[in-house]
């Protein structure tokens, strides 16, 4: 929901980032206000997943130029855990399996860490169990997933639901969903999207990184950005996603010339 008066959550200007010396982001600009839903689309290799990882503080990426402000605070100085506690959440494209750590233990430790940071009450295992089971209903998740190791042996769809469950628990102010739609069948996509929609409100913001328009049928963005070669080359409303779906990414370039020719 666009409201020009709402608070700026994320302000990125001329962001350049490298991984092992290769520059992937080459001047990204984006502003996200609370209450907004942004979609970043683009072909593989355009830099959209890198952008999400850079925001979350992945140690393999180095910011070489530009500014990265979250709620007015310079993010580039913060460790990934400090960003998480400040309210940034990355739903991973490939969630990591952690054999040997029970999912409920992991979820509770994460929840309590963030709660503690906010000065809110931490939950003991019994209290947390009730709390998390309620949240799992939102994603139609089987409670059995609590007793299993984190993501271990989960199907692609189950992993993605577990990511959104973490989002529901941690209540981030800015959630980055990196290709959350990939590997989901249509039923799972609907459930995940419905969960995300219920978590979305006027005080938080979402950035959806996606290759396809499919997810945007269910989570309707306020803005659609197209990324190419490490930069955002086009920003428009939700109709842009539909046009890309119909015409393909090449269409951007032909379309650019036409609009460029207009007075």
């Amino acid at each position: 929901m666009i409201n020009a008066n709402s608070k700026i959550l994320l302000e990125v200007h001329d962001l350049h980032a490298t991984v092992s010396g290769a520059e992937i982001l080459k001047g990204v600009d984006i502003t996200v206000r609370s209450g907004e839903i942004h979609a970043i689309m683009g072909l593989n290799g355009s830099g959209k997943s890198t952008f999400a990882k850079v925001l979350a503080g992945h140690p393999s990426y180095e910011v070489t130029r530009g500014t990265l402000l979250f709620d007015g605070q310079d993010l580039s100085a913060l460790a990934p855990e400090e960003r998480a506690r400040a309210g940034i959440f990355l739903a991973f494209q490939y969630p990591v399996e952690i054999p040997g750590v029970a999912n409920n233990q992991f979820l509770r430790l994460a929840y309590n860490t963030v709660q503690g940071q906010r000065g809110e009450e931490e939950l003991d295992p019994l209290e947390f169990d009730d709390f998390v089971r309620e949240k799992m209903k939102l994603l139609k998740m089987n409670p059995d997933f609590l007793d299993r190791s984190v993501n271990e042996g989960f199907s692609g769809g189950e992993k993605k639901r577990n990511e959104i469950l973490q989002m529901a628990l941690l209540e981030p102010r800015l959630a980055l969903l990196d290709e959350t739609d990939s590997g989901l069948d249509i039923d799972a996509l609907r459930i995940v999207a419905n969960g995300v929609n219920q978590l979305s409100n006027k005080d938080n913001a979402l950035i959806l990184v996606t290759h396809y328009q499919r997810l945007l049928d269910y989570i309707v963005p306020d803005y659609v950005h197209v990324m190419e070669a490490g930069r955002i080359i086009r920003t428009s409303g939700k109709e842009l996603a539909q046009a890309l779906e119909t015409h393909g990414y090449d269409w951007i370039h032909t379309n650019e010339q036409i609009t460029g020719a207009l007075p």
Binding site: A56, G57, H58, P59, S60, A79, P80, E81, R83, A84, R85, F89, L90, F92, P95, V96, I98, P99, G100, V101, F106, L109, A110, T113, V114, Q117, S149, Q166, L170
Partner: peptide, 29 residues
């Protein structure tokens, strides 16, 4: 594993806690 460390840190775990948890998990299996 670096990806596992980052995953835990991105959920708010301090680096040292993340390391210990992964070590525990490694043995926990």
């Amino acid at each position: 594993d670096k990806e596992s460390l980052f995953y835990l840190q991105s959920r708010g775990f301090a680096e040292e806690v993340a390391r210990n948890l992964l070590t525990y998990a490694f043995g926990g299996e």
